[in-house]
C-alpha cells in the first residue's frame, strides 16, 4: 500500500513516519500481553491467596493454599460470632474514624483555602509558608508527646482520653489544615474572582458565597481530598495502636493485628483472612470507582 504523498516527500525512512497513520493491526503486541500477564500474576497472587484462605472451610494457616479445594462461608460465621474479638465494633470504629476524620479535614482545609485564596490580610504569605514548613514534621513523629498529652487529658475529660476514638480523630485533624491547604488553594485560585464579586454586588455575605457557591464550584477537589484522607485514616496504624487499647474501641488495623500475634495465630488464620478481605472492601471499591480523582490527587504529592 504505497502512498503517493509519502513518496513525493521522499523521506528516507518513510515507513517509520507513516506508522501512526497506517491501520496495521497490532500483531507485534503479543509479547506485551505476555509480560502484562506476568505482571497480573505478580499483582494478583497474594489477593487470590487471601480470598482462598477466607473461603477455606478448615480455616487454619496449615490448610491454606493458593487455589481453594473447598468453599464455605464458615470463616465469616466464626468472625461475626466471636465475642472476644468484636469485629463489627472494629469495623464501625474504623468507618467512624475515617469518615468523620475525612469530612473534618475537608471542611477545615476548604475554609482555610478560601481565606488564603480569596482574602488579603496581614500574615497571609508567612502563614502559607509556615504551613508548608510544618509539613516537614510528620505528626506521627510526635507520638510520645501525643500519648502523654492525651493520657493526662483523659484524667480531666474521660471522653477525650486514651481509648476514645474521638480523641484519635482530634489528633488526626491537627494536621488537616497544613496537609491539604496548598492543594485546595491551587484549585480555589482557578475559580474566577468575578463570580464572588458578582455575588457580593447582589448582597450575599462572605459566608453565603462560601457555602452556597464556592464549595459547589470546587467540588472535584473536595472529593479528591476527602478520598485521600479517608484512605489514609482507614489504614493508619501507629497512633491507633497507641491510643486504642480496649478491645471494643479498636480499629480494623489494630484488631486484625492482634489476631496474627500470639499462640493462636495459625488457628485463627481463616477468620483473620475473612476479616481482612472485608476490611479491604471499602478502600478497594473507592479506588476502582473513583480512579480518576485519586490518581489525580496522588500525582500532586500524596503518598500512601
Amino acid at each position: 500500500m504505497s502512498n503517493v504523498a509519502d513518496a513525493a516527500i521522499a523521506v528516507p525512512e518513510s515507513r517509520s513516519v507513516t506508522v501512526k497513520s497506517s491501520p496495521r493491526p497490532a500483531t507485534g503486541a503479543w509479547w506485551r500481553h505476555l509480560l502484562g500477564l506476568l505482571a497480573l500474576i505478580w499483582a494478583l497472587f497474594p489477593i487470590v491467596f487471601l480470598v482462598s484462605a477466607a473461603i477455606n472451610p478448615a480455616g487454619s494457616l496449615e490448610t491454606s493454599s493458593l487455589i481453594p479445594k473447598h468453599m464455605s462461608l464458615a470463616n465469616f460465621h466464626t468472625l461475626f460470632a466471636d465475642t472476644s474479638r468484636p469485629y463489627t465494633s472494629w469495623y464501625k470504629n474504623s468507618m467512624i474514624i475515617a469518615l468523620s476524620g475525612a469530612l473534618g479535614s475537608v471542611f477545615i482545609g476548604a475554609c482555610a483555602a478560601y481565606a488564603f485564596s480569596r482574602m488579603r490580610f496581614q500574615g497571609r504569605r508567612p502563614g502559607l509558608l509556615a504551613l508548608l514548613l510544618l509539613q516537614m514534621f510528620p505528626a506521627m513523629l510526635t507520638f510520645p508527646a501525643l500519648y502523654l498529652t492525651f493520657a493526662n487529658l483523659g484524667d480531666v475529660i474521660p471522653a477525650l482520653g486514651l481509648n476514645s476514638i474521638w480523641a484519635l480523630i482530634l489528633c488526626y485533624l491537627g494536621g488537616a489544615m497544613g496537609a491539604n491547604v496548598w492543594l485546595l488553594k491551587g484549585y480555589f485560585d482557578t475559580i474566577p474572582k468575578e463570580l464572588d464579586e458578582a455575588a457580593k454586588v447582589d448582597g450575599a455575605s462572605h459566608a453565603r458565597i462560601f457555602f452556597t457557591m464556592t464549595l459547589r464550584l470546587v467540588m472535584p477537589i473536595l472529593v479528591t481530598v476527602f478520598m485521600l484522607s479517608f484512605v489514609g485514616l482507614f489504614s493508619e496504624f501507629l497512633l491507633a495502636s497507641i491510643f486504642l487499647r480496649n478491645v471494643d474501641s479498636q480499629t480494623l488495623g489494630v484488631g486484625l493485628y492482634t489476631m496474627t500475634i500470639g499462640n493462636e495465630k495459625n488457628r485463627l488464620f481463616g477468620q483473620f483472612a475473612s476479616g481482612a478481605l472485608l476490611a479491604s472492601l471499602p478502600v478497594v471499591l473507592l479506588y476502582l470507582g473513583f480512579q480518576k480523582y485519586l490518581v489525580g490527587g496522588m500525582t500532586q504529592g500524596s503518598v500512601k
Binding site: A43, L44, V231, F237, A276, Y287, K304
Partner: peptide, 16 residues
C-alpha cells in the same frame, strides 16, 4: 487490576 495492590489497606497487605 494492577492498581489493586495499592488499593488494599496497608495493614492488610503487611499481615497477609
Amino acid at each position: 487490576i494492577l492498581i489493586l495492590p495499592y488499593a488494599i489497606p496497608g495493614f492488610v497487605t503487611a499481615l497477609v
